[in-house]
């Protein structure tokens, strides 16, 4: 099975297989026979890979896996190639209001289905203790408003989406 992992901003396409006796992860840098066994402590595992036995702590999030290994914490982004393809028609760039910084939504002025005019304030966010008003990039109809007042969002989260322009 194919997966794309992202470590330190670098994407790598990998294949995981099982040859009947063990797992092998085929990475761009070669095949890594590997085995992962849980230990007693929360998130505790022992990883056997490339001849090394390594204790680690691990937590699986919705889009990333977090690993604490040898005194350091790492985030490994997981990209499902199938989902990536399906998600690529996410609309034109000017249909989306993307978060410039992580923050929290202070207020939301519209709901899906509402018509908005270019420049109309759509929502107010607070990032790094500063309030910012985000406005409609063009006339249109709100397709998605995924966050409510009080919700937190990450960097580059889509805060509002307009319905595609009719051609």
């Amino acid at each position: 099975m194919r997966r794309i992992f992202q470590v330190g901003g670098v994407e790598a396409e990998c294949w995981l297989i099982h040859d009947g006796s063990r797992f092998i992860l085929n990475t761009p840098d070669g095949a890594v026979p590997c085995q992962l066994d849980a230990t007693g402590e929360p998130g505790g595992h022992v990883l056997r890979a490339r001849g090394v036995v390594q204790e680690l702590r691990l937590a699986v999030g919705p889009d990333s896996t977090f690993v604490h290994l040898n005194g350091r914490a790492y985030e490994i982004g997981r990209v499902d190639p199938a989902r990536r393809l399906a998600g690529s028609d996410g609309g034109a760039a000017d249909d989306r209001i993307v978060a410039p910084m992580p923050g929290v939504v202070v207020s939301v002025a519209f709901k899906p289905g509402d018509a908005v005019k270019e420049g109309q304030p759509l929502l107010v966010i607070e990032s790094m203790k500063l309030e910012t008003t985000l406005s409609a990039p063009r006339d249109g109809v709100i397709a998605e408003m995924p966050f409510a007042a009080g919700d937190s969002f990450g960097l580059k989260a889509v805060l509002a989406q307009l319905a595609p322009e009719e051609k």
């Binding site: 790598a12 990998c14 992860l25 990475t27 840098d29 992962l36 990883l47 896996t65 490994i76």
Partner: peptide, 8 residues
Amino acid sequence: DLLMAAAA
């Protein structure tokens, strides 16, 4: 490679 093996 260890991190990707653990994630996989």
